[in-house]
């Protein structure tokens, strides 16, 4: 199979009109004198992107950059003002394509009266799946997202992290080829963030394409093949994250306590610098380094990437505009 892009956006644009008149269907044809009294917001200003099958793609941008608006256009919730997009090679409203996509909205909210199995069975029922398939998948997914202990609880009683996890289970009920997640880690504690990160990583290993938005660098850098940086409705940069953070791989700073000097020497090849408790390790070696450090009895105090921050890029791009 030749790999054609799983997602393409070409010159996608959305202009919101706010205020009473803006809600009129024929608004755009009104004379400008009338339109002038209405506010327009250019939420998305002509985005073009392609995402290849199997990629994990990070859609980065500060709050209000237009990430959610773009994703909602892709999901058919909002109609683009201009431009077009394809999902799995089909136009946006194609239902066969939508049967192969999973989506988790930003700050999702779900039917509170349902218990987890009922919840997933409901979403499964919207796809062409047999009852048996639905049940089996639901059970497996609840197990995977760690909610098997909460089967008797209605969603009303779920914590924020549990809601996010059942939301992801919902997005995966149809074994989608493309998974679209809008700020899946926002509002979670560090442990919750890591759980979501691991889940995305697992999806990637299953060969699924993941497209997710975030405004936090740490959430995306270890798991994304490529990212796009969106500022004020425009894509400013696209590419692998390392090349975008121009300073390149400055390594990761790890503080480890409790290591005698002689064991510290055995911690692997990735260490480029050592000053007392402070080590600087190549990004790709961090996992191995940490494992080794724990094994020899060290205690990890902190892990910090040595890079230019994404925030710096946001600010810089916003100022340039």
């Amino acid at each position: 199979m030749t790999a054609s892009p799983i997602l393409t956006l070409s010159d996608l644009e959305k202009t919101f009109t706010t205020g009473f008149l803006g809600a009129l269907p024929g608004f755009r044809r009104l004379p400008w004198q009338v339109r002038g009294i209405v506010q327009t917001v250019h939420a998305v200003r002509g985005i073009s992107l392609t995402v290849e099958p199997g990629e994990t793609f990070g859609f980065l941008g500060p709050n209000g950059a237009g990430k959610t608006t773009t994703i909602k256009m892709l999901m058919g919730l909002i109609r683009p003002s201009k431009g077009s997009a394809t999902l799995l090679g089909k136009p946006l409203n194609d239902r066969a394509a939508r049967a192969r996509i999973g989506y988790l909205p930003e700050q999702p909210y779900f039917y509170e009266h349902l218990k987890p199995m009922e919840f997933l069975d409901f979403y499964g029922g919207l796809f062409p799946m047999t009852v048996r398939e639905r049940r089996d998948r639901a059970r497996a997914l609840l197990d995977r997202v760690g909610l098997s202990h909460a089967l008797d609880r209605p969603i009303r009683k779920f914590s924020k992290g549990m809601v996010q996890r059942i939301g992801i289970a919902q997005a995966l009920i149809n074994a989608p080829e493309l998974v679209v997640l809008d700020e899946p880690m926002s509002g979670l504690d560090p442990l919750g963030r890591k759980e979501i990160r691991d889940l995305i990583f697992e999806l990637k290993h299953q060969g699924r394409t993941v497209f997710f938005s975030s405004h936090i660098l740490q959430d995306v850098e270890q798991i994304c093949d490529r990212v796009a940086i969106l500022v004020r409705g425009e894509v400013k940069r696209t590419g692998p994250i390392n090349t975008l953070l121009e300073d390149g791989d400055g390594g990761v700073e790890v503080l480890v306590a409790g290591l005698p000097a002689e064991t510290a020497a055995r911690l692997g090849s990735g260490v480029s610098l050592r000053e007392g408790h402070r080590y600087v390790v190549a990004s790709v070696e961090v996992d191995a380094f940490l494992r080794a450090a724990l094994e020899v009895g060290g205690s990890i105090r902190s892990v910090t990437p040595q890079r230019r921050s994404l925030e710096a890029i946001f600010v810089e791009e916003a100022q340039r505009a």
Binding site: I101, L104, G167
Partner: peptide
């Protein structure tokens, strides 16, 4: 209002 519709309309349903 509760945004539950966001998860339903993107599914293959008219």
């Amino acid at each position: 209002e509760r945004k539950t519709i966001y998860t339903i309309l993107p599914k293959p349903i008219h």
